[in-house]
């Protein structure tokens, strides 16, 4: 690993915080979904970094990342299906 582990963790913490900030302040549903994707990517970076440095077996972190990506895609699909349904019934996707 060329970069020390702590630097990567700082990066992912910042990405996580930006994502949480986004979910708290965004008014638009799709904007909130975008912010949640940022959080999930921060988690994935953490997992891969740890699987490369501290994991007891090298496959664990990467496989967990696969599952996070798959579930994030599923949640995004459901979210966007609900956004479409909501738009159809109320013509707006603002949360306030």
């Amino acid at each position: 690993m060329i970069i020390p582990l702590e630097h990567i963790l700082m990066f992912s913490t910042l990405l996580f915080a930006i994502g949480v900030y986004g979910t708290l302040v965004r008014r638009n549903l799709i904007g909130i979904l975008i912010s949640i994707e940022l959080i999930l990517n921060a988690v994935n970076v953490n997992l891969v970094a740890f699987s490369r440095t501290t994991a007891l077996s090298p496959d664990t972190g990467q496989i967990f990342t696969f599952f996070v990506i798959a579930l994030a895609a599923a949640a995004a699909a459901v979210g966007l299906a609900i956004v479409l349904a909501l738009y159809r019934t109320s013509r707006t996707i603002f949360t306030d």
């Binding site: 949480v20 549903l29 909130i32 979904l33 949640i36 988690v43």
Partner: peptide
């Protein structure tokens, strides 16, 4: 459903 999804996804991500 939208509210549940947003809160739930945020909570799961955290």
């Amino acid at each position: 459903s939208a509210k549940y999804l947003l809160f739930g996804s945020l909570a799961s991500a955290i």
